[in-house]
Computed example of a mutant assay.
Amino acid sequence: MNDAITAEGLVKRYGEVTALDGLSFSVQQGTVLALLGPNGAGKTTTVRVLTTLLRPDDGRATVAGHDVVRDARRLRAKIGLSGQYAAVDEHLTGAENLEMVGRLYHLGAKRSRERARELLERFDLADAADRPVKGYSGGMRRRIDLAGALVADPPVLFLDEPTTGLDPRARAALWDTISELVAGGSTLLLTTQYMEEADQLADRILVVDHGRAIARGTADDLKDQVGGNRIELTVADAADLDTARETLAWVAVGAIRTVPESLQLTVPVSEGAEALHRVLGGLADAGVRVRDAGLRRPTLDDVYLTLTGHRTPGADPHQAEEAAR
């Protein structure tokens, strides 16, 4: 398969701050790459460079066969972009917003109207086509924004945290739409702060921190890098947390995570059921009462914490990344 996106040694600085520090990666045609990283990692800066909104200070990149600097004008006709916030005119109707985008892409008045109606049907917005966007819900705004990115039927799409702020139902609906686009042959670069989103949608994942790639591969590849299993347990009494940590230290192969508010502990172990059996026996001998216990594989959340040293920021769906600052 050919690469739809390539980045080689991208560097971007904002004064004394280096947002991208030699970032390199590629995305095959017809696949999804999820770009993960803590706030300030360089995710949005990467999207802006690849969509010609920023010029890199060093390195080079191509999208759909066009250099993002030398061929910027021709490239813009081959890409679609949906940013962190819906880029729509609240005073125009849904149909008028999409028709305006079509005219900007030089599709002509007739084709712009046809394309707008096609996309309104596709995104289940036909009933709201003639209503001003200011009356749309958050999920409807995200859908009309994504529809706008598809007006010119671009082969490459960039979605910068497309589901931030959506409720679970709207997020699941948008995931279905994204999956349909990929099934139709589109190439997507997706930035997200939701681990489940990356696990669900991405063919490959790139973890970035301080403008550098620190891990890459499929979700399973990254989970294998962390290795082992995780014992999750909940103690019955907050006074037992310290005793539980001391008791579990001998079996842990990494840092033990404690959530005092929920009385939970997560223990990375190299073995499976045998380790769980020994842990429960040790806690019983220490007089620690366990309310719940289980064994699971690492999640992308575990990967993220291990690789970056940060908890996943997606716990606050309204928190937007600040342009890699």
Rank of each mutant, 00 (worst) to 15 (best):
N2M: 13
D3E: 14
A4Y: 07
T6R: 11
A7P: 08
E8D: 15
K12S: 08
R13Q: 13
Y14D: 11
G15M: 08
A19I: 08
F25C: 08
Q28G: 14
Q28K: 15
Q28A: 15
Q29E: 15
G30K: 03
A34G: 14
L35M: 07
P38M: 02
G40H: 09
K43Q: 11
K43A: 03
T44K: 08
T45W: 08
T46M: 10
T52D: 10
T52V: 05
P56M: 02
D57Y: 04
A64E: 10
G65P: 09
V69G: 01
I79H: 06
T93C: 06
N97I: 05
L98I: 09
L98H: 06
E99V: 15
Y105W: 12
L107W: 09
G108C: 10
R111I: 03
S112W: 06
E114I: 07
E118W: 06
L119Q: 10
L120A: 04
A126G: 05
A126P: 00
A129P: 09
P132R: 12
P132A: 13
V133F: 02
G135A: 05
G135N: 07
Y136D: 05
S137D: 11
G138W: 11
G138H: 02
A147E: 06
V151E: 03
D153S: 10
P155L: 07
V156R: 05
V156L: 05
D160M: 04
E161Q: 05
T164K: 00
G165R: 05
R169A: 14
R169H: 11
A170D: 13
A172D: 13
A172Y: 04
A173M: 11
W175A: 06
W175M: 05
W175D: 14
D176W: 00
D176Y: 01
T177H: 11
A183K: 14
G184Y: 01
L188N: 03
L188A: 07
T192V: 04
Y194S: 08
M195V: 02
E197C: 04
A198R: 10
D199C: 05
L201Q: 09
D203I: 00
I205L: 12
L206H: 09
V208P: 08
D209T: 02
A213V: 12
A215V: 01
A215D: 07
R216Y: 11
T218P: 00
T218Q: 06
A219D: 04
K223V: 03
G227L: 12
G227P: 00
G227T: 01
L233I: 09
D237A: 10
A239Y: 01
A239L: 06
D242I: 05
A244C: 12
R245D: 02
E246N: 13
L248T: 11
V251G: 02
A252G: 08
V253S: 13
R257C: 00
T258C: 10
V259R: 15
V259W: 10
T266N: 04
T266R: 15
L276K: 09
L280Q: 14
G281T: 13
G281F: 00
L283R: 10
D285E: 15
R289W: 03
G294H: 10
G294S: 15
T299R: 14
L300H: 06
D301A: 12
Y304W: 06
L305P: 01
T306R: 15
L307P: 00
P313D: 12
D316P: 13
P317L: 13
H318N: 14
Q319S: 14
Q319Y: 08
E321V: 15
